[in-house]
Design a protein around this nucleic acid. Structure first.
Lengths: 152, 152
DNA sequence: TTCATTGCAAAGCGTTTGCACGTTC
DNA sequence: GAACGTGCAAACGCTTTGCAATGAA
């Protein structure tokens, strides 16, 4: 099922709204404007880009508010934070995507996504081996295109 | 074979020395003092801790030099950078350890290490699927101890 | 002698904080 | 009308940079 952007926004808006209510947080225009902007972007984004986009939109917000709001979205899983390198945090909207991992292609700066069941198997082995309960993971592969290899 | 610290230092010193020569970089006392300090520490370290240790040692260096030197060690694989969270970069000496991944245990702040051949299998699958050449990866699991689960 | 490397302090950069003002409940 | 949320600018913490002095080759 392909869901267009308007529908997507309405659904995540309800999700966010419910979360705010549950946490007794206020439903401000800023928060919904940010949510809308994030879900209108495709793929991944960083705070600076989001900030610029909102400057140019009809609803300007400060960076403080952006960070505060993204924090709320992280809590309710509408957004997830990717830790590719320590100088630039990248986020992605996450509501409609099942859990996945990433491949960074260096030359093209592409972020490929994949989902491999063997991760889950490794997780189970580790839980038994160390007697722990794993609740999250982060896996990123770094790659070159074949073309790049040939050039070298 | 168990290698004691002195031997370890002599071997990595040669490795580092060779690398500096190859890259036409100077062999300064600071660089070797930092190498010695890192390989005398066990496990992982952050820049601040290393800086403090060196302050109290008989060879004081500036942070600028520390960062510069660590950069060189990253290049020649004597040290690797762990990206657990964006506020605190953690490094580990890496010459004698084969490639491995990490499990962070939240309550105890333990860093467990493991090595699982299934990662290599996933890597090969991705290379074929996306027609790319993967040269590195980063995998971290986040866990709680079973005790912690029970307390909740 | 030459010029890479160093130490120091200042600058950068992304993120957080403090406070007065504005808005939701 | 009582907080909570916001914008702004200043503070933060880690890392990098600029520059004069040092020292490896």
């Amino acid at each position: 099922m392909k869901v267009d952007q308007v529908d997507t926004y309405e659904i995540v808006k309800k999700h966010f709204s419910d979360y705010l209510e549950k946490k007794k947080q206020r439903k401000t225009n800023e928060r919904f404007a940010i949510l809308k902007e994030i879900f209108a972007m495709d793929g991944h984004f960083d705070v600076e880009t989001l900030y610029m986009k909102m400057r140019n939109s009809n609803y300007k917000v400060s960076k403080a508010t952006l960070y505060n709001t993204i924090e709320l979205m992280l809590e309710c899983k509408l957004v997830s934070k990717l830790k590719f390198n320590e100088n630039s945090n990248i986020y992605e909207k996450s509501y409609y995507f099942k859990q996945h991992d990433h491949v960074l292609v260096l030359e093209t700066k592409e972020i490929l996504e994949f989902c491999d069941p063997r991760i889950e198997e490794i997780k189970r082995s580790l839980e038994i081996q160390f007697n722990i309960r794993i609740f999250d993971h982060s896996l990123t592969f770094y790659a070159n295109t074949i073309d790049q290899i040939k050039k070298k």
